[in-house]
């Protein structure tokens, strides 16, 4: 129905020419694919840092007692600030601001600053995901571990976190997909990644088909990841159910 309406609209021939040009598609795809490797590089490196930093923040935030109040407050402040600022602004401010300090030991590479920006933002999101996972582990688990003589950190490391992380794998992958798409924002700093390459092609020809090619590349990488998440979840559920049946 929607397709019929679109195809019969008066502007459709112009839109088809502008967005679905086979020649433009095939001529722009190789270049965009090459540029897409930059996106892959960026999100792979960034995700590694994010998983570590996010976990550290989440653990900091779940430290109990008044002694750790400053650390907890810091973690909360961090999550509030970096979840609050639009990603595009963080990348602009860091990417053009930090090199403007003219400190010779600071890198000027746009990719580096882009990654730093993404890590800051996504670590804030991911720390919340971890925290939800940690909170979902019943306090009796921690109590039991402590009564067996494990220290607080040992209990966290060997009892709470393994259960917590397993539960939050789907939302973590959700954030990972978000990260993949946000790598396109690094284009703002001048880096020629897939989106910027397609913009260049669009501006050179005044034809929008390269955007479609880029969209397909992003989808091509997120769909397998989504299926992988589904498979992981199903496997986990099967295991737990069979364990329940046995036990």
């Amino acid at each position: 129905m929607i397709v019929v309406v679109i195809v019969n609209s008066p502007g459709w021939p112009a839109v088809r020419r502008a967005f679905f040009d086979g020649h433009e598609f095939t001529s722009s795809l190789p270049e965009i694919s090459r540029a897409f490797l930059t996106n892959v590089e960026i999100f792979c490196i960034a995700e590694g840092f994010i998983l570590v930093v996010g976990l550290a923040i989440a653990v900091m935030r779940s430290l109990p007692g008044p002694v750790f109040f400053p650390i907890r407050a810091l973690a909360i402040l961090y999550a509030d600030i970096f979840r609050g600022i639009p990603t595009i602004l963080v990348i602009y401010i860091l990417g053009f601001g930090a090199p403007a300090l003219q400190l010779s030991w600071l890198p000027t590479s746009t990719v580096v600053w882009g990654i730093v920006g993404l890590v800051l933002i996504y670590s804030a999101y991911v720390s919340e995901v971890y925290r939800a996972g940690i909170d979902s582990v019943h306090p009796s688990q921690d109590a039991a571990a402590r009564s067996l003589g494990l220290s607080r950190s040992q209990s966290m490391r060997h009892v709470v976190l393994p259960q917590a992380v397993r539960r939050v794998v789907p939302p973590l992958l959700n954030d990972f997909i978000g990260l993949q798409k946000d790598t396109a924002l690094i284009a703002l700093l001048g880096t020629v990644e897939a989106f910027r390459q397609s913009q260049i092609d669009v501006a050179a020809t005044f034809n929008f088909t390269p955007y479609l090619a880029t969209a397909l590349l992003f989808v091509a990488i997120t769909i397998p990841l989504a299926r992988f998440t589904d498979w992981l979840l199903n496997r986990d559920r099967r295991r737990r159910q069979s364990a329940g049946a046995l036990g």
């Binding site: 053009f96 090199p99 403007a100 003219q102 000027t108 590479s109 746009t110 284009a187 703002l188 700093l189 001048g190 880096t191 020629v192 910027r196 913009q199 260049i200």
Partner: peptide
């Protein structure tokens, strides 16, 4: 080295000032 490509002239000028290009 691959080129830096900017949304606006201003961004390009900033990158030049910063030594990014």
């Amino acid at each position: 080295p691959g080129p830096g490509v900017y949304d606006t002239l201003n961004d390009g000028v900033t990158a030049l000032k910063n030594g990014q290009i």
